[in-house]
Nucleic acid binder design. Structure first.
Length: 267
DNA sequence: CAATGATCCTGTCCGC
DNA sequence: TGCGGACAGGATCATT
C-alpha cells in the first residue's frame, strides 16, 4: 500500500492522535510482527511521544522513556485509531495501547508489516542503510546521475532500490517516469544528464502533489481517521488503460512488479 | 559488487 | 458456485 506520501499521511494522523496522550503498552497478536530489542528497558511504558519522524517508508516514534518505536507498513499494513478498542479485528497483528481503553490497531492481512521497539540509542543498528530522501536537496540531478552511472539494471528497478533513494514505490516510480518521458526498462547507464534532471524534478513534484491530497487509495489504503487519499484520481499511467493523450499503455514486468508506461510518450 | 529470482502471507479477481 | 492461477503498493535473502 504505502509509499512515501501514504506513510507521511499516516504519520501525520498518528502524530495528532498521540499528541498529549500517554502510551500504555504494545500488544502483539501475530508471531513476528512485533520485534523487541533485547536491550529494551522494562520501563518503556507508560510514556509520551517526544517526536514522530519519517525516514523513507519507515515511521519513527521517539518516546520520552528513551525508547523508539519503528513502524513499517510494508504492503498491507494500516494503523487505525479506536477510542474504545475491544475485540481484536480479524487481521489485527498488534495494538498500541493508550490510556483509558483507547488504542491504535495495526491491521495487516499479509503480515509483512513490522513494529520494532528498541532502546533509542540502538536505532542505527535497527535501521537499514537508506539513500537520501527524494524531497531533500541531497536528491538532485547530480546525485541521480552518479548512482546510475555504469548500472545496467532497468531505471525502474534502480529507483525502487531503497539503498539508493528512500521512499519511492511502484506507483510513484511509474508516474514520475511517465512525466519525465523515460521508459522503465531503460538501463540506468543510458539515462542522460538532462533526463536525470527531469526525473528528479518530477519525482519531487509527484510526491508533493500526492502528499497534499493525502496519498493514493488503491484498494483499501486509509488514513488513521479512515478517510481515503485522493491521488488515485490523478494517476496518469499506474493501473490505467491509456495515457492522458489517449495512447494505449503497456504493462510489462520488471523485477517482478507490473510497470505501466506509454510506448509513444516515453523513450 | 551487481543483477535476478524466490520468498514471506492472505485476499481478491478473472477465466473456465 | 467452485476451482486454479495470477496478481497485489515491500523488503530481504540466496544464487548466479
Amino acid at each position: 500500500m504505502p509509499e512515501l506520501p501514504e506513510v507521511q499521511t499516516v504519520l501525520d494522523g498518528v502524530q495528532s492522535v498521540l499528541n498529549g496522550r500517554v502510551l500504555a503498552g504494545l500488544e502483539s497478536y501475530y508471531p513476528g510482527t512485533v520485534i523487541l530489542d533485547p536491550e529494551l528497558s522494562d520501563d518503556a511504558f507508560p510514556s509520551r511521544l517526544d517526536k514522530a519522524t519519517r525516514r523513507g517508508k519507515y515511521m519513527l516514534f521517539q518516546l520520552d522513556s528513551g525508547v523508539t518505536m519503528i513502524v513499517h507498513l510494508r504492503m498491507t499494513g494500516k494503523l487505525v485509531y479506536d477510542s474504545q478498542a475491544m475485540e481484536t479485528h480479524k487481521h489485527e497483528r498488534a495494538r498500541i495501547l493508550l490510556e483509558g481503553g483507547e488504542a491504535i490497531r495495526f491491521i495487516d492481512p499479509r503480515t509483512f508489516g513490522k513494529i520494532t521497539l528498541l532502546k533509542s540509542e540502538n536505532l542505527e543498528y535497527y535501521m537499514p542503510k537508506l539513500g537520501p530522501e527524494p524531497l531533500s536537496e541531497e536528491f538532485d540531478a547530480n546525485y541521480l546521475h552518479l548512482i546510475l552511472a555504469g548500472r545496467s539494471a532497468p531505471i525502474k528497478n534502480l529507483l525502487l532500490d531503497q539503498r539508493l533513494i528512500a521512499g519511492l514505490g511502484n506507483i510513484y516510480v511509474c508516474e514520475l517516469l511517465f512525466r519525465a518521458k523515460v521508459r522503465p526498462q531503460r538501463p540506468g547507464k543510458s539515462i542522460s544528464r538532462k533526463e536525470s534532471r527531469l526525473m528528479v524534478k518530477h519525482a519531487k513534484a509527484v510526491l508533493q502533489e500526492a502528499i497534499k491530497v493525502g496519498g493514493t487509495s488503491i484498494s483499501d489504503f486509509r488514513r488513521i481517521d479512515d478517510k481515503t487519499g485522493e491521488f488515485q484520481n490523478f494517476l496518469q499511467v499506474y493501473q490505467q488503460k491509456e495515457c492522458p493523450k489517449g495512447h494505449a499503455l503497456e504493462n510489462i514486468r520488471l523485477g517482478g512488479r507490473s510497470s505501466f508506461y506509454c510506448p509513444v510518450c516515453q523513450r
